[in-house]
Design a binder for these strands. Sequence first.
DNA 1: GGGCTGACAGATTTTGCAATCTGTCAGCCG
DNA 2: CGGCTGACAGATTGCAAAATCTGTCAGCCC
Lengths: 197, 197
Amino acid sequence: MVPMADTTLTPERILEAAEEVLRRFGPGKATVVDVARVLGVSHGSVYRHFASKTALREAVADRWLDRVHADLPAVTAGTAPAAERLRSWLHTLHGTKRATALDDPELFATYVALVAEASTVIAASLDGLVAQLARIIADGVESGEFAVDDVPRSARAVFYATVRFHDPTHSAQWADPDIEQQLDAVCDLLLDGLRPR
Amino acid sequence: MVPMADTTLTPERILEAAEEVLRRFGPGKATVVDVARVLGVSHGSVYRHFASKTALREAVADRWLDRVHADLPAVTAGTAPAAERLRSWLHTLHGTKRATALDDPELFATYVALVAEASTVIAASLDGLVAQLARIIADGVESGEFAVDDVPRSARAVFYATVRFHDPTHSAQWADPDIEQQLDAVCDLLLDGLRPR
DNA sequence: GGGCTGACAGATTTTGCAATCTGTCAGCCG
DNA sequence: CGGCTGACAGATTGCAAAATCTGTCAGCCC
């Protein structure tokens, strides 16, 4: 068991090792001993940087969510009409998740399990997403494209109405070749609902 | 092991016994030997009426779905304006499910597990529900309340957009005291989307 | 001295065997 | 006869011992 410590031990390096172990063994069999072995250190050292196995897993979940949602802020901050941006935002969110899910279903399931454990992380992340929706809708109201009484309420409604297309519990349906048309149909309905009459 | 066969053995009686066993032991521990014991017959007899344990469980799932959806056709066939009927239909579906889920979460979980196994049954049931939505929307189009190009497409969109409120995978959220307001917010958006402009 | 190790207690998970269950069918019984 | 029984083979599940894992900490080593 010769160590291969070519760098100092950092949270960053531990997270990378943890991801590798999760990729290889899945969430059920990944242990912190495995993580330590990949790093060539004793498992006690890992506990110097993460208070518990749970904390480590939460950090991995957080990291993954950041990566999966990385493309969205650019859409939110775009210059296109609000309706277009809203549709594009929803398709981006759906598209990234679907691609991840279909590309490597097992790895996707691993990350989903991780995120499901980390209820704090997930709540914060969802609030951030709804805030982006609210910003797009607010822009639309300002430009006269949309007319809504209560922007946050509508943002939440849009988020909830598209649960089928971004919530991992529905990922089995994302293999349906018709799924994008379904999302479009829901978008049509929602956008018509947001427009002034 | 004295028999208590007070009637002839019918599929009906077997289904009732199966439900009792499922209620008491849950989906993981209910066996067809248990069912036979409740009926005071040998387990071989059960196989005279149901081809397999799976078939028996499917029949139970089917029965349960029928019961849970029993109130909907009356709403569909009602005389109120289509918009009202649509909202009421969605609230009825959500309300029945939520009541069942909150009243006895364990029994609810049992039935959900059963239905999840029975993919054929579930697909047929969902098609029936979407058909009811389509009928309400078609009525609305005829009366001028709604304006949509493609009624079946919109019906599916409405169904998908309200997944959060009727799909059992989301039942954990139904305890939220705000859940009905959330459904109302989504309904507002959808109904505005269906109306002519 | 500060990061790291490795042994340890208690909790959790694997393992392999025993018990139970599913589905079948030859024959019994009314 | 026609529905029912009970024994049976193969598959599945439960259980208890053995192995592994988590989290801690006294002490080592650079």
